[in-house]
């Protein structure tokens, strides 16, 4: 198993591509989500087209388009740059949708309540909407981050020296393919575990471990309302999505 050290040695490269793409995606996704939810229809449509193009066309195709295709324009990005650019842009499309679904999960009535209290839209977003959207956004980000780590394996196809490239090389040199690829797969899996854990920690609301207060022992009455009434349901939804991430 001496070959194992060769695979382990390039873990930092896989993680580097993953981390930079994820951050790039998460940052670019902010204006993308903003545009997707814009009041202006043309802006909204443009963002929707961007998102669908990058989600609908396989990442591998984009990888080749950027690595080989940009040469037509006299640009020759290195394999590593192409990898990060591709995965970053593809991520921005996915993550923008994650942001959007998180934000739109907060009922419009919450915004109306802040408007009626004279809060600015900015404060409303920061103090009311984002805290409620956070658990949903982080849940989406978490599963995407795991997906993305596995996507980094694609970059071996344009010659980035990452885990799969090394594994391939070793097998070509006569190592047992089944063992090498299986072990490499397990390494991917083990790398995913802490990511899932970290994201779960980040998404946890500050309330989760907090006691309700000194008066929390008084018996609680269940909020009840007809189904058409929104508030208690939203209350429940908030509650449920917190506890589901425990």
């Amino acid at each position: 198993m001496i070959w194992l050290t060769d695979v382990l040695a390039v873990i930092p490269i896989s993680l580097f591509i993953w981390a930079v793409s994820l951050v790039l995606g998460a940052v670019v996704a902010v204006p993308t989500a903003g545009a997707r939810m814009s009041q202006l229809r043309p802006v909204r449509i443009l963002a929707a087209v961007y998102i669908e193009i990058f989600r609908g066309i396989p990442t591998l195709v984009w990888l080749f388009v950027i690595f080989f295709g940009l040469r037509t324009f006299g640009l020759s990005p290195t394999a590593l740059v192409s990898a990060i650019l591709t995965l970053g842009i593809a991520s921005s499309a996915y993550i923008a949708e994650t942001y959007r679904s998180g934000l739109s999960s907060v009922p419009i009535q919450q915004r109306e309540a802040t408007t009626a209290l004279g809060l600015s839209p900015r404060l409303s977003l920061i103090k009311i909407v984002l805290p409620q959207a956070k658990p949903i956004i982080f849940a989406g980000l978490g599963s995407y981050a795991i997906h993305l780590l596995k996507e980094t394996a694609l970059t071996s196809l344009i010659g980035v020296v990452e885990m799969m490239t090394v594994a391939n090389y070793l097998v070509e040199r006569g190592a047992n393919g089944l063992t090498v690829f299986f072990v490499t797969g397990v390494i991917y899996m083990l790398l995913c575990l802490p990511i899932a854990g970290a994201v779960r920690l980040l998404g946890r609301s500050r309330r989760q471990n907090r006691p309700a207060g000194p008066d929390s022992l008084t018996p609680l009455s269940t909020p009840t309302a007809p189904p058409e009434c929104a508030a208690p349901w939203h209350g429940m939804r908030w509650h449920e999505c917190n506890s589901s991430s425990t």
Binding site: G213, P214, D215, S216, P223, A225, A231, P232, W238
Partner: peptide
């Protein structure tokens, strides 16, 4: 007596 209660822990009338 309900200052620190979260809305989900209050009845409709209390909310």
């Amino acid at each position: 007596q309900r200052m620190n209660h979260m809305p989900a822990h209050l009845s409709g009338g209390q909310q």
